[in-house]
Nucleic acid binder design. Structure first.
Length: 861
DNA sequence: GTCCTGGAATAAGAT
DNA sequence: AGATCTTATTCCAGG
């Protein structure tokens, strides 16, 4: 079977896929013996499949072509969808589960056969994990490799910001399998999947490692199979065993990349054609995630009745989700999930009625004018996230017991607001929704804070009321963290981050304040990083705080490190790396073992290798408990002995400002020094707002406000993001070419092994929506491209607004191709590192150095 | 019975 | 290619 299967995938030049509800299983199986996959959807979906349809439409779009696949030589999969929605109709087909078109044929061109399948990537039937296949494919395709070396922990912090180039043909088999296996989308309940599993993975171990085969053994039992495999509604699944989890990689997770017609695309298309509302319920949410909140038979996210009252923002941003919602509720969630009664009524109109809210990956300020969103009580640095296969592991707690607390200061209105919470990344790149973790709503007796779960661009967002009577303060005792399987996420098209060792997250809070001017002010703040893995939490040292940020080159000063898992024999190593990642210097600091505890280490700053430095030098240090048990890098700066205090600009790597700790205690306590880029970036919007254009160096310049250095939140940016209804985010999409005279801003971020410049582009509108405008980042438009347009166009305001100077929001360039589905995505293009040749890199660095230099000089002056 | 947790077994991956 | 160490996931069991 396996061999046959592989064969089919490997050698079949043309694959015709027709999705058919009833025949899928068999059809799919036929695959094993034949080169042709014929899956037909003969039955109109009885669920909302807009997403899927959209996806399909996207894929079926004739204008889209895999950039890398030679059409003539590529294997082709023809999807004959009966009842497929035309792309244009998808959006308005909320209530049109039935196909408006029949026999639409989607022809997907795959990379040529050779590259199309990696011998090592076995079919689902094989025991080879798709993950490995996929991962390999991804890396391979991306042309990058993860260099964990750069980080003591091999951290994810360095996940490459590379967009997949598209064809992960290698993964095709697996994905195809996966999807084919769940033609009906109802991942969680689809009996088909069970069938598939049984027949395909029966040999596999209980551990699903791959999306392809990832199924728990218990799901193999025949009972899992439901009688009505095809209808989510029928989802038999009373038994939890029913599809414990399906591959997260369902179409919903697949970003649509223009140039990614790979297996993923195909699978996505297939799924789209066959998926029912269930699947897309959590379009971005892994089945399991949905499962957590579902009762048997209900395959959906915790969509409470109140869900209907999606915030405008949501509606706007996730038009698809909003459109789907009704269906979902009606079909699957109605009455199943009730929100605990709370004083706060979710049905209450949301305060932020702005049609367009900033995408989750946009960098927003934590304060503006009188308003300031602050995390009064930080969450513990460790929180073991639960898998979909596990029960909840409870709400995130605060270090001193209790739960995190967030408060909006400066808000004097009487209108309640909504506090949004989602799980963001904690690496040294721009804050963005974490691909491998999702916020998980906790309910129960112990939860005092009402919450409401929504979905925004594939990211679950918890909405919590901020009430004036509570002083706009909210106790976050309703938020847990769900871990998605790496293999599932990594298979998502456009996803460039890797899950392995990418276990740090931050809780990101947002609030949207409607101002009298009619504008909406969006503020955001992020918590300190939290380690979410069991092992890491137990073994890896973690530095939460450091009492010093800088010290004279002579060293000798004492610094107290606060954190976790410090050991008696913990070592603290200071080191310096060159831009190319080479170690320039490394030395061990003296640890005062007598005064050190598991949560604190007192060390003596070692002298810098060069006592005659004329300018501050950025170095790093980490705590080491032994081989492979190192903390993340912590930033530190050596300053010239005779230079008392300098408000330095970031180094080439854009590290945080080097402010003498003694002069800025707050900063000194700041646990994470590596967020400057975000802040800097966040500054841009203001510039744009003010004048439209901003100098390329503005980020560097603007990023240094003292407030920044003392900001309690790494992700917090000092600038205001004033949203105006008239300037919907979407406008970025249609932003006139006349804007952004200087659309290109470069910043340097540390990446594995070296410092790499990142480019943030604010291309003209045309570029934004034009695939071709994003040469280096297919993923940019990829994952969510299909949705983006809608999203952007959703704003009630005429796009004319787009002609106005770019949005005030600073669209952060999504670093994770698959993540941001925001329309802005299209506008913001992050050039992939690989796109920059060293020469360019050098040039950029040089320029920045010069700028910084001069700035420093001015500072001194 | 459902949550929460803490631990740990085990497979997949990385060295 | 095999051994060994890590990390990711799944399971268990107790409160």
């Amino acid at each position: 079977m396996k061999s046959a299967e592989e064969d089919a995938y490997s050698h079949t030049p043309n694959t015709s896929v027709s999705l058919g509800k009833s025949c899928l299983p068999s059809q799919y199986h036929s695959l094993q013996s034949g080169p042709t996959i014929s899956v037909s959807i003969s039955q109109p979906p009885s669920y909302s499949a807009q997403n899927d349809m959209r996806t399909v439409g996207y894929y079926s779009s004739p204008s889209i072509h895999p950039t890398e696949a030679p059409v003539l030589e590529s294997p082709r999969i023809e999807i004959t969808a009966y009842g497929q929605f035309p792309e244009e109709e998808v959006e308005e087909s909320n209530n049109l589960p039935l196909p408006k078109q029949v026999n639409s044929i989607v022809t997907l061109t795959l990379p040529n056969a050779d590259g199309y399948r990696d011998p090592s990537c076995l079919s689902p039937a094989s025991s080879v994990s798709s993950r490995s296949c996929h991962s390999e494919a991804s890396s391979y395709e991306s042309g990058f490799s993860y260099n964990y070396e750069n980080s003591p922990q091999n951290s994810p912090w360095q996940s490459p910001c590379v967009s997949p180039k598209g064809s992960s043909s290698l993964a095709l088999p697996g994905e195809a399998c996966t999807h084919a296996g769940y033609p009906h989308n109802s991942p969680s309940t689809s009996p088909l999947s069970s069938v598939m599993d049984d027949s395909w993975m029966g040999q596999r171990g209980s551990r699903p490692n791959s999306p392809c085969g990832g199924k728990r053994k218990y799901s193999f039992n025949g009972t899992t199979t439901s009688k009505s495999p095809y209808s989510p509604n029928h989802s038999p699944g009373p038994s939890p065993h029913t599809s414990p989890r399906l591959s997260v990689t369902d179409e919903s997770w697949m970003p649509n990349n223009t140039n990614q017609y790979t297996n993923s695309a195909i699978v996505a298309a297939i799924n789209a054609l066959t998926t029912d509302g269930v699947a897309d319920l959590g379009e971005g949410i892994p089945l399991k995630a949905r499962k957590t909140s579902l009762e048997p038979g209900a395959v959906c996210l915790k969509v409470e009745p109140g869900r209907e009252e999606l915030s405008p923002g949501e509606l706007c941003q996730d038009e698809y989700s909003s459109s789907r919602l009704p269906l979902k509720k009606e079909n699957y969630c109605g009455g199943l999930l009730d929100v605990p009664s709370h004083p706060y009524s979710w049905s209450k109109p949301k305060q932020y009625v702005s049609p367009s809210l900033p995408a989750l990956d946009w960098q927003l300020p934590s304060s503006s004018g009188p308003y300031s969103l602050q995390i009064e009580v930080q969450p513990k640095s460790h929180h073991r996230a639960h898998y979909e296969t596990e029960g909840s592991r409870g709400a995130v707690k605060a270090l001193a017991g209790g739960h995190p607390v967030v408060q909006l200061h400066g808000y004097m209105e009487t209108e309640p607001l909504i506090l949004q919470l989602f799980i963001g990344t904690a690496d040294d790149r721009l804050l963005r929704p974490h691909a491998f973790y999702q916020v998980h709503r906790i309910t129960g007796k112990t939860v005092s804070t009402p919450s409401h779960e929504t979905l925004q661009s594939n990211t679950k967002v918890l909405e919590i009321p901020l009430l004036p009577e509570n002083n706009m303060r909210a106790i976050i005792d309703c938020s847990g963290i769900l871990k998605l399987r790496n293999s599932d996420i990594e298979l998502r098209k456009g996803e460039t981050d890797i899950g392995r060792k990418n276990t740090r997250v931050r809780m990101v809070f947002r609030v949207h304040i409607n101002q009298s001017t009619g504008r909406t002010l969006s503020l955001q703040t992020a918590s300190n990083p939290m380690e979410c893995s069991q092992r890491s939490a137990q073994e890896l040292p973690l530095v939460d705080k450091q009492t010093l940020q800088t010290c004279p080159a002579a060293g000798g000063e004492k610094m107290l490190l606060s954190g976790h898992n410090f050991q008696h024999n913990s070592k603290v190593v200071f080191m310096e790396k060159a831009q190319d990642g080479h170690h320039l210097w490394e030395t061990e600091a003296k640890v005062d073992k007598d005064s050190s505890k598991s949560t604190s280490l007192r060390i003596e700053i070692p002298p810098y290798r060069n006592q005659r430095i004329s300018s501050p030098v950025q170095v790093k240090f980490y705590v080491c408990n032994g081989k492979r048990k190192r903390s993340q890098y912590q930033g530190f700066t050596y300053v010239p002995a005779n230079v008392p205090m300098i408000k330095m600009e970031p180094h080439d790597d854009c590290d945080p400002p080097q402010v003498c700790p003694k002069h800025c205690p707050v900063l000194a306590l700041h646990p994470k020094p590596y967020y400057t880029p975000q802040v800097m970036t966040s500054m841009i919007p203001t510039e744009l707002r003010m004048g439209g254009a901003y100098p390329a160096c503005q980020q560097r310049l603007g990023g240094k406000p003292s407030s920044l250095s003392c900001s309690s939140s790494p992700s917090t940016s000092p600038k205001l993001h004033d949203l105006s209804p008239t300037t919907p985010f979407s406008m970025c999409l249609s932003a006139g070419p006349s804007q952004s005279p200087i659309p290109h801003v470069s910043i340097i971020q540390e990446t594995p092994g070296r410092y790499q410049p990142q480019s943030v582009l604010y291309p003209p509108s045309s570029a934004a929506s034009s695939p071709g405008s994003q040469p280096s980042t297919p993923s940019t438009s990829g994952p969510e491209a299909p949705f983006s347009p809608t999203h952007c166009l959703t704003p009630p305001q005429p796009i004319s607004g787009s002609s106005s100077p770019v949005t005030e929001q600073l669209p952060k360039v999504p670093e994770r191709g698959g993540r941001s589905s925001s329309p802005t995505l299209a506008n913001n293009i992050k050039q992939e590192p690989q796109e920059l040749d060293q020469m360019y890199l050098d040039d950029v660095n040089e320029i920045i150095r010069n700028d910084l230099s001069s700035i420093s000089v001015h500072s001194h002056a």
